[in-house]
Every structure is written in C-alpha cells, then in structure tokens.
Design a protein around this nucleic acid. Structure first.
Lengths: 197, 197
DNA sequence: CAGGACTGTTTGAGTATTCATTCATGCAAG
DNA sequence: CTTGCATGAATGAATACTCAAACAGTCCTG
C-alpha cells in the first residue's frame, strides 16, 4: 500500500474540492473516492473546514516552493519577475498540483473572519513577498522601470489571479493567452529605450 | 408603497447574494429581509437558481450601460480604454450597484454547464466587446501601441477581475491601489516616444 | 349596481431530502 | 490490556420547495 488512509483521504479531498468546490463536495463522495469509511474524516481532520484548510495549505506550500526555486535561478530582476509569472501560470494549469482547490468556492468566500482564514492569508502574503523581492532586485539592477514594489507586486499578482480565472473558469481565453499576458507585463515594466543606443 | 413585493424580493436577494454568496443565502433570510412570505419566491421566480440569474443579469445590465456610456464620451482610443477601466473599478466599489453578486460564489462556480450559465456568459462577452471596440479605436487613431485587440481586451478585463477581487475580497490592497493599476495599464499600451523629436 | 365567477397574489406550515457529525463497536499492534 | 485506527449506521439540523387555503382585485351579467 503506497498511501496511508489519511493520505488517500487528503488526496481525494484535494481532487474533489478542486473539481466541485467546497459546498458540492460531500463527506460521502470523498470517502468513496478514497475507499475508506466516512468516520475517518472527522477522526483525522476534525471537521470539513479543517480538512479543507489542510488541502489548501498543502497546495499553497508546494506553490511557494516552486516560486522560490524559480526566482532564485533568474539572472536579473526583470527575468525574475517574468519567471515568477510564468511559474505561476504553469503551476495553475498543471492538474497534478490541485491548484483548483484555491480557485473554486471555499468556506472562506464569505465575510466571516475565522482563524483558519488568517492562516491562509499569511501564506498568501508570502506569495506576494517573493514577487516583491524580485521587483526590488529589478529596481537595484535597473532592469525595470522605477515603481513602488508593493503596489506593483500586488498588481501583477492580481493580473495572475485574473488571467488564471479567465483561463480555467471561463471559455473566453484565446489561444496563446498566457504568453500574451506575459508580454503585457513585460511592456508595463521594461524601461523605455528612449535614448536609443 | 414604493416597491412591489416582487421588487422588494429581488432587492433583498441582491443584497444577500452579495453579502453571503449563493449557498449561505437561504430563502428564509431573503423572505425575512424583504418582509414577505417564503412562498412568493418560487411563485415569482421559479427556483433559487432562477432568482440568482435575475439578480446577476440586472447587475450586469446596469454595468454594461455604464461602460457604454463612458467609452462613448472618450476623445480617443487610449482614453476610452483607461476610462473603461476606471468605470469598471468605480462600479465595483459602489455598494448601490450590488456588484458583489457577481463576485461571490454562484451556482455557476462549478463545472456543470447550464442554459442559465450560457445566458450570463453571453452578457460577459458584451463586456469584453465594449473594450475590444475601444482598443480598435486606439489602433486606428494610433493612440496605443499595436496589439491584438481580442487578446489585449481579455488581458485587461482579467486584470480588472484580479485587482477588483484583491480589493474587495482580501486585505492586501494598499492605498491608491486602483490608481496604480490604471497607471500599469497605461504603461503597457502607451506608445513609446522612441523617435523623440 | 349587486353579486358571482375568475384570475392572480400571498401566506406559512408541512414535506422530503441532503449532509455533517456522532458513536458504539470492531480490530490490530505493542 | 491498552491505545489508537477504522467502520458505517444512526442522528439531528438545515433548507429548498410544495400546496391548500385565504385574499384581492377585475370583469361579466341580470
């Protein structure tokens, strides 16, 4: 047996939360897909929200690792930013990452603030942090136009959020959409060669 | 009496769908807020999904009117695009527009395709259409850099989706975030004054 | 005008279903 | 014997939707 029952449960939950969203995913579906009894879920994870949190955190953690790995290899600030974007988009369309867990409806979608939600928010801040660092590199090595790092990072992450949603949730994304989005980012932060030479 | 019961019901539904999302909004809550009996909902709207569709379409329709009005007054292509973005963001933070109905979890958030969903999608295509036209204007009057209109429109709309979500659903948006996002768009599509003269 | 059918609105208690969670019990390893 | 993993039927709460009955207007007719 490769997976423990707990692991099988978590994997099934990630698959189903990503396919169906939080509300349409029932304990019964998860237990069936994982091939274990329903009661194991509350036993191992406490309740449905906690289970979802475990799924989300795992996906986010893998995502962070990928982003850090990627940007650390980039030769300068500008390419770090563009590599970050590319890594973001690549990760988001790789089915094995269970990215959709983070995109579909979650228990945190409404306003009620919970401790669990705060844990997720902190992780998301780290996602921003990686890009902020890349932008600061770009400012130092002058490979990008002068901008506020936090503002610009937030905007670029927002752009990633938006193009990703368009690509995975709607039928509007044209061919080569992600590539064009990268071009768009590049145009917005590449220094103008005004003194051409 | 200013509102008919049917109107009161629709308004209460828009408020609550925007506050709580689709799943957390119950018939009981809506009926209570509107001050009418529960049975009236199915009588007037058929079922919960239809009611949601009515809410969403009304918001989208108002949105479209605003976008068309705005871009038609702009003096050239570039300003039409930027005015479009500004109108988008303004609309999205005006509580009286019930914009949040379109942002929170909806019955269309999962994959099952329904006829209702297609109706919404068509309306969203019109949203894109307005921006595509503005970009085409910009290409003709040379107020923007040469780009593919459909690709660029999709990217800019995606950027609006992303920054709006960041602003209204998360705590990450810094002060002046929307203004900076507009600057970002401007930088990405303004022609470079390379032949400085 | 009276009144009586007819039509559409309004009500809220009732129904059927779904689903997260509980728990009594079984089982296996140390 | 004890401890923790594992089971799945039972429980109870939530909720979308139904429906029979009350109500209100409108139109027709003698």
């Amino acid at each position: 047996m490769a997976l423990t029952k707990k692991e099988a449960l978590l994997q099934a939950a990630k698959d189903l939360f990503g396919e169906c969203g939080y509300n349409e995913t029932t304990f019964k579906k998860i237990a069936e897909r994982a091939g274990v009894a329903m009661g194991l879920m509350t036993h191992h994870f406490g309740n449905k929200e906690k289970l979802f949190l475990a799924c989300g955190l795992e996906v986010l953690e893998n995502f962070l690792v990928k982003l850090r790995e990627t940007t650390s290899k980039s030769p300068n600030g500008l390419t770090a930013i563009l590599d970050y974007c590319k890594a973001y988009l690549d990760f988001s369309i790789d089915p094995s990452t269970n990215w959709l867990v983070l995109v579909r409806c979650s228990p945190y979608s409404d306003m009620k603030t919970t401790a669990d939600r705060d844990i997720m928010n902190e992780k998301f801040l780290e996602i921003h942090g990686v890009l902020i660092d890349a932008i600061k590199r770009g400012l130092e090595d002058k490979s990008i136009v002068p901008v506020d790092p936090v503002q610009t990072a937030t905007i670029i992450v927002s752009l990633m959020v938006g193009v990703n949603r368009t690509r995975v949730l709607t039928p509007y994304a044209p061919d080569g959409f992600y590539e064009q989005a990268l071009e768009f980012v590049k145009r917005a932060i590449t220094p103008v060669p005004s003194e051409t030479r």
